[in-house]
């Protein structure tokens, strides 16, 4: 099997089984309870293979909420570094997208993208659980349409050729 075919399989598997981890970077809890609500029977994201994992090491997608506070910014960066490639960050809520209602608060930095690269933004205050599901679903659609012939898009899916790394970061 060629490298290309293998990548194709990996890509498909990733789309069918994104495990998410959740991080509150200083939000009001509104988005957090809606993220928890997507697991529950009414919305049940397990039918898409989405699982909420406690350990960022196991996760593929990091759901971040809230405008990043000055205390959480280094922790967010560190948790992002702990995750294994391929990894994606989704900003949930208006304050995670673009500062939102906290733009006057001195101890906040702004959207998640000021600290780590963001793959998908889900505006809403808070977004409905369906909107969160839709956001993750749209991220997967974006992955599915990646053209693996191109090097940079190939890199974003997998690091198959990469040797296992030793992280300087330890789990908090």
């Amino acid at each position: 099997m060629s490298d290309q075919q293998l990548l194709e399989i990996v890509k498909n598997a990733l789309i069918k089984s994104p495990w998410v981890s959740h991080l509150n970077c200083g939000s009001c809890n509104g988005c957090d309870i809606e993220i928890l609500a997507v697991l529950t029977p009414r919305y049940d994201v397990e039918r898409f293979g989405i699982k909420l994992k406690g350990s960022p090491r196991h996760a593929d997608v990091l759901l971040c909420t809230g405008s990043v506070t000055r205390s959480m910014a280094p922790r967010l960066k560190r948790i992002y570094n702990q995750m294994a490639d391929p990894k994606f960050v989704v900003a949930v809520g208006s304050c995670a997208t673009n500062w939102g209602v906290f733009h006057n608060c001195y101890n906040t930095l702004g959207g998640i993208d000021k600290v780590v690269p963001v793959a998908m933004y889900i505006p809403g205050c808070p977004p409905r659980p369906e909107a969160i599901v839709f956001g993750v679903y749209k991220l997967l659609l974006k992955l599915a349409s990646l053209d693996l012939e191109k090097q940079e898009e190939k890199d974003s899916v997998s690091n198959l050729t990469q040797e296992p790394i030793r992280s300087e970061e330890v789990t908090t």
């Binding site: 509150n24 200083g26 939000s27 009001c28 509104g30 809230g66 405008s67 506070t69 205390s71 959480m72 922790r75 304050c95 209602v101 906290f102 006057n104 608060c105 001195y106 101890n107 906040t108 205050c125």
Partner: peptide
């Protein structure tokens, strides 16, 4: 302090109506 945003200071900049929505959050 990880979730400390500084809302009390921000409230002094808002208006009585704007503050309704910051307080809510």
């Amino acid at each position: 302090g990880f979730n400390h945003r500084g809302i009390e200071k921000a409230l002094e900049q808002g208006t009585w109506i704007k503050n309704l929505y910051l307080i809510e959050r």
